[in-house]
Structure formats: structure tokens, C-alpha cells
Design a protein around this nucleic acid. Structure first.
Length: 486
DNA sequence: GCGATCAGCC
DNA sequence: AGGAATGCTGATCGCG
């Protein structure tokens, strides 16, 4: 039993994805009690809390404490405080996350600034080219204006629509790029601008005097049990090659001769699909350490030597199944026609028959019980699973299919984080766990601890789940920066 | 202030 | 018949 309780986490575990878990909303919902609003306390003046008169500040604060306790008592009564996943995972993890946030992540300011200069040059020159090609000044960052220039002034062929007009997204512009260079230039301009504003400027703004950023991990927002990360979001740092990949080269150790070590679960969601469905073909592939995308490709394209493109298609199918894909979704994703996409998906199910069985059962079960759950018992309620509107129903089907897989992955890595934090503490190690990116943990490591960490972290992460037909596999890489640790 | 669009990651 | 990938956060535009 943890030394503390958290009413927010209790509410989240009861029903993840419910909007409005704030104290005032819960008080209103549960006890029809209307709490004092911040506006009331300040008389609608924009005051700092320390500027609020003491008497009213005291009442306002006491009310928070009182309501929190009311919710706690209610959680005890209804049994929420006994929920296993709350006690075994969420509450212990809270302390681990707090320490990661306080520890921070070291980012080299000069490296980031250097990337910023490169980007600035690219952006400036692309802007000039685009304006020249357009024959008029306009704001390239405005989808509306881009649409007017491309489709009205220049008369390029229009593609798919949005609520407000014609789409100018990257896949639409990509279609046009062969014939019209301006389309590719706008895609590139957006790419570099995104890197500049979100990653270079965004991260620089949040660096403290020690060149550390302290993210906030939110453990009560996602519907599946995943964490999220804000200010900065460290879970969407670019990972591709080129200038984008350089952002990760700024993520370096804080220690003298230190290294960055990344441990990631290999193919974890497909492995979990194999384990949870019990499909012999899928399990067999992992047992024999066969490249799973290649294996699926052999089923989809029988009798031929598998090309890179065929493997890419198979990979999209493998992931698509986990996301509850439709033929249309896959065809759009891959830019192929819907008939072929349907054939590929059918081939997948034909050759992994128990996967289909498992997914059908998942949906059927959800229709009866109203919820789906992970291997560890984390639940998600999906009332729309029985909706008569087919669009809503299909969306619920996809969510029902995805949650147990994505959520089990989230459970596993959270347990691993708790165990690794214990291990680091028990052995008084100086190295730090600094980031979590859904199936990856990142560490800032002092050189003397490199080998023991590498060994122990792998053992801990691979042994979270017992009695499974195939092992979970963890790859560990390290280098002078996060970019090199992969 | 907020919805819409776009783009980054798993 | 039509709509159509799971889960997130952030920057920017442009309307009100």
C-alpha cells in the first residue's frame, strides 16, 4: 500500500477518458455541491492567489481539502481504493514520475541554437522561392491562403475537402508535388517551420539555467492508460533522419563523460497481439525470431521474393490490425486502391486466424459488458459499442480493439518504471531515469554504471509479464546523445 | 478564447 | 449508403 492516495487517479482508474475530473466538477456531480470558484474568491479581479485576502483564501483552500476528503471517503466506501491497478501501478508510479520531472532532461543549448540557424536559412530561402512561384506575397502558414493561391490563383487540381474548404495537408500537396514544385516547397517550408517553432524555440524557451527541461507527465488523461507529456512534450520529439533527427542530438548527458541509454520494447504491440490472441502463426514467428513484417508480407504476396515495398505494406497491415483498420483506412495510408487493401487485410486474417477470432471476441465481450480491459485489469468503458449509428459503432469497435493492446503495453512499461526506480535506489546508483516514450525508457548514465544498468534494465523490462508463450524483447542502445542511442 | 488545420511521435 | 486508423500535444490562423 502506497503511503499516499490520489483522488484524481482514483476517478481516472474508475473511468478513464471521462472529461471533467476537477474537484469542482466532481463535487457538483457527486454531492450536488457548488464550490467557490476562483473568480468568486478574487471578485473577478485578476489576482494572484497570494494577493487574495486571507480569510477568503482560507475558506477557499479548506473547501478543496474538505471535498478531497469527501471523495476519498466515497472511494473507500465504493471500493475504488482497493482497485489493484491503482495500488500496484498508478499510486507507486506517481512518485517515480515526480522524480523524473524533478530530475529533468539535459539539452545542449548551443546545439539547439545551431540547428535553429540552419533551419532559419532553409525557411528564408524556401519562403522566397514560394512567393516567387506564387507570384504574390501571402502567409504560407495559413492553410486558407495556401488554398487560395494553389487552387484559385494557380488553378492546381483540388483534392479532398475539409469542413472549411479544400485540404492543403501534406498528403494532398504530396500528390501535386511531382507536377508542381511549389507544392513540395510548401511541404518543406512547413516541415522546417514546425521544427523551428515547436522543437528549437519551444525547447529553448523551457530550458532552465542548468540546461534542463522539466516536463509534466500526466497520468490521468489518456483513455488507454498511456502517459502524456506537456511543457515540453518529450513524447513527440522527431526521430527521423535529416535535420529533424538532429534535434535528438541536443539531448545529452549531464554527467562528465556520461551517456544516454535508451531501452525500448521491440515490436511490443504485435507481440502482445500474438500473446493475447494465442495465434500459432504469429507466436511462431516470434518464437523463431522471424521478422514479423516479412512474415506477413509472405502471406500477403505468396510465391514471390519480398521487396522493400511489399514489406512496408505488410508493416502497415500489421499495425493497422492493432488500430482496428478498415480497407479504406489502409488504402489511404498506403496510397493504393481499396480493393487491394481489402485483399491484404483478408490475407492477414486468413493466415492469422486466431487473431480474427480474438478481435471478434473482444468486440462481442465489450458489447455484453460495456467495457474492455488489459491483461492487468485496467478498464475502459465504451457505451457507444452498442450505438445504432454505424460510424459511431465502428469507431467504438476500433477503440475496443486497440485499448487492450495499447493499454497492456502501458501497464507493462509502468510496472517496469517502478521496478527500475526501486533498483536504482536500492543500489544507490547515480544514473537517472529521465524519459518515457510509450515503449521506450531513456536514462542519463554515468560511465561506471553503464554495464550494470544495461544488464539489469533488460532483465527487469523483459520479465514484467510471467507465463507467456513468447518473451518480450528489449533493445538497449547508448551513445553521447539520444540520437546516438538507437 | 476557441475551433479548425496541420504536423510531430507511438 | 457513407465514412473510415489507436493514443496524444503544440503552433498557428482566423473568427467572434
Amino acid at each position: 500500500m502506497a503511503k499516499y492516495y490520489d483522488t484524481l487517479l482514483g476517478e481516472y482508474i474508475k473511468n478513464p477518458g471521462v472529461r471533467g475530473l476537477s474537484l469542482d466538477k466532481l463535487a457538483l456531480k457527486n454531492d450536488n455541491y457548488e464550490m467557490i470558484s476562483y473568480d468568486q474568491v478574487t471578485n473577478k479581479k485578476k489576482l494572484n492567489f497570494k494577493e487574495v485576502e486571507l480569510d477568503s483564501a482560507a475558506i477557499y483552500s479548506a473547501e478543496d481539502v474538505y471535498i478531497t476528503n469527501q471523495i476519498f471517503l466515497q472511494h473507500k466506501e465504493e471500493g475504488t481504493t482497493d482497485i489493484k491497478i491503482l495500488n500496484d501501478i498508478e499510486l507507486p508510479l506517481l512518485e517515480v514520475l515526480m522524480n523524473m520531472e524533478l530530475t529533468g532532461v539535459h539539452i545542449n543549448r548551443d546545439t539547439l541554437k545551431g540547428i535553429g540557424l540552419l533551419l532559419e536559412n532553409e525557411i528564408d530561402s524556401l519562403e522566397k522561392t514560394i512567393i516567387h512561384e506564387a507570384g504574390e506575397e501571402f502567409n504560407i502558414k495559413s492553410p486558407k491562403q495556401v488554398g487560395e493561391v494553389l487552387f484559385e490563383k494557380l488553378g492546381l487540381p483540388k483534392g479532398k475537402k475539409t469542413k472549411t474548404g479544400y485540404s492543403v495537408s501534406a498528403d494532398v500537396l504530396g500528390e501535386l508535388s511531382h507536377e508542381f514544385p511549389i507544392a513540395q516547397n510548401i511541404v518543406d517550408y512547413r516541415h522546417y517551420s514546425k521544427l523551428q517553432s515547436t522543437y528549437v524555440e519551444g525547447l529553448l524557451d523551457l530550458l532552465d539555467d542548468n540546461e534542463l527541461v522539466h516536463t509534466s507527465y500526466n497520468s490521468a488523461v489518456t483513455t488507454t492508460g498511456r502517459l502524456s507529456s506537456t511543457k515540453p512534450n518529450l513524447q513527440n520529439i522527431p526521430s527521423s533522419h535529416g535535420i529533424a533527427g538532429e534535434i535528438r542530438s541536443a539531448f545529452v548527458s549531464r554527467f562528465e563523460n556520461g551517456i544516454i541509454m535508451a531501452a525500448d520494447y521491440s515490436q511490443v504491440e504485435v507481440r502482445l497481439l500474438a500473446i493475447m490472441s494465442g495465434d500459432e502463426n504469429l507466436l511462431g514467428a516470434f518464437k523463431n525470431e522471424i521478422d514479423i513484417h516479412h512474415k506477413t508480407a509472405e502471406f500477403i504476396f505468396p510465391g514471390s521474393t519480398i521487396t522493400n515495398n511489399e514489406r512496408k505494406i505488410a508493416k502497415a497491415v500489421n499495425f493497422g490490425v492493432i488500430y482496428g483498420i478498415s480497407g479504406f483506412g489502409l488504402s489511404k495510408m498506403l496510397g493504393i486502391n481499396m480493393k487491394d487493401a481489402k485483399i491484404y487485410i483478408d490475407k492477414f486474417y486468413e493466415n492469422y486466424p486466431k487473431v480474427r477470432e480474438y478481435l471478434d471476441n473482444t468486440i462481442k465481450n465489450c458489447e455484453e459488458k460495456g467495457y474492455v480491459e488489459t491483461m492487468f485489469g485496467r478498464r475502459r468503458y465504451l457505451p457507444s459499442i452498442n450505438d445504432r449509428n454505424s460510424i459511431i459503432k465502428s469507431a467504438a469497435n476500433r477503440e475496443a480493439i486497440n485499448m487492450p493492446i495499447q493499454g497492456t503495453n502501458a501497464d507493462i512499461i509502468k510496472i517496469a518504471m517502478i521496478k527500475i526506480a526501486e533498483f536504482l535506489k536500492r543500489n544507490s546508483l547515480k544514473s537517472k531515469m529521465i524519459m518515457q516514450v510509450h515503449d521506450e525508457l531513456v536514462f542519463d548514465v554515468i560511465p561506471e554504471e553503464k554495464e550494470i544498468l544495461k544488464t539489469e534494465i533488460k532483465i527487469i523490462m523483459e520479465n514484467i509479464v510471467q507465463d507467456i508463450p513468447i518473451p518480450l524483447k528489449v533493445d538497449i542502445e547508448s551513445g553521447l546523445s539520444w540520437k546516438e542511442a538507437k
